[in-house]
């Protein structure tokens, strides 16, 4: 890992490079401000120490001219930093479609990663280099926060909802994963490692895991076991929305609003169906909150997503 002299941050992702440029610019601004203040203070302390011969005549009378000029100057500097920071943030918050989507479930005190092919890892994440990876984050219990310092990405993992973050690693290697939101006794041990691999090596790694069922296939089993298929299928006599082609479409709800059927929407519908009744359907679906683990939810969502094609 990094030597203890942090001359230059090691970055291993596109986001790291973008954030580092901002870092350097803003550090420059900060050093400039501090040096100006310290320089002036020391100079005045030296020149105007008691007993020095410097003239004290003609104290500045019109202070407002000075005040307005330095207020405007700092405001301009501040706005520059604000705009740059906001642009980076918006860019990071808008995940590109992503070539690979991996589900991450945080629970006291481990990270569980679920690959689309059904491979699972604990406190470890294998990804191919130069590939846009989307991570869909869920928490089983308290608030965690998923942080990869080398990629400069972080997001709180709040129970009750899903968050999506993304990265594109540029260098093969291993990098720390940390939880940064106090989550209990073993908070400091809720760490892991991202292993960035060459695509060929990543392909081999996937095969070595010996998994025969993809995440979507595992989801289909959950879909049957919990009786979802009893209503949400063409063979059913119950008037319920079909899952085929649902993911990514615009859904009109009973209350007049409409939502895009993304991961977060699917999760909400499964857990709180009465709050998200689809227009034209009777509100008869039972409430699944508390009955499905985040693991099962992830599988269900992956299954429903697979029906979009």
């Amino acid at each position: 890992m990094q030597g203890w002299l942090p001359f230059w941050p090691r970055t291993a992702a596109v986001s790291g490079e973008v954030v580092n440029a901002l870092y350097i610019a803003e550090l420059g601004i900060c050093v400039l401000i501090v040096l100006t203040v310290v320089g002036l203070m020391l100079r005045f302390c030296l020149v105007y120490r008691r007993g020095s011969s410097a003239s004290r005549a003609n104290l500045v009378a019109k202070t407002w001219q000075w005040e307005i000029s330095w207020t405007v100057a700092t405001l301009v500097l501040f706005l520059f930093a604000f705009v740059w920071g906001a642009v980076v943030y918006i860019w990071l918050y808008d995940p590109p479609s992503g070539e690979l989507q991996i589900y991450v479930v945080g629970k006291q005190w481990m990270w569980k990663m679920e690959h689309p092919g059904g491979q699972r890892e604990i406190d470890a994440l294998h990804v191919p280099v130069n590939t846009t990876v989307r991570l869909v984050l869920a928490s089983q219990d308290v608030i965690h926060s998923f942080f990869v310092p080398a990629f400069r990405i972080k997001r709180d993992v709040v129970p009750g909802t899903l968050e999506t973050i993304w990265f594109k690693a540029t260098k093969a290697g291993t990098y720390r994963i940390e939880c940064t939101q106090l989550c209990g006794v073993q908070h400091a041990n809720m760490t892991g490692e991202v292993t960035v691999m060459e695509p060929a090596a990543f392909g081999r790694w996937l095969k070595q895991q010996g998994v025969h069922e993809s995440l979507a296939q595992q989801g289909e089993a959950v879909f049957r076991e919990h009786g979802c298929s009893g209503c949400h299928s063409t063979a059913s006599t119950v008037h319920a929305p079909l899952m085929n082609g649902l993911y990514g479409s615009l859904v009109h709800l009973q209350d007049g609003s409409s939502r895009v059927a993304d991961e977060r929407y699917l999760r909400d519908c499964i857990l709180l169906p009465r709050t998200f009744t689809v227009a034209g359907y009777p509100p008869v679906m039972p409430d699944f909150s508390g009955q499905l683990s985040e693991d099962d939810l992830v599988k269900l969502i992956a299954y429903i997503k697979s029906l979009a094609k």
Partner: peptide, 21 residues
Amino acid sequence: TIGGVTGLMVATLGLDIDLHD
């Protein structure tokens, strides 16, 4: 002043993602 300018850094959205917590 040092506390203030580092406050600007954490107020900057793109940097706070990295520095928060």
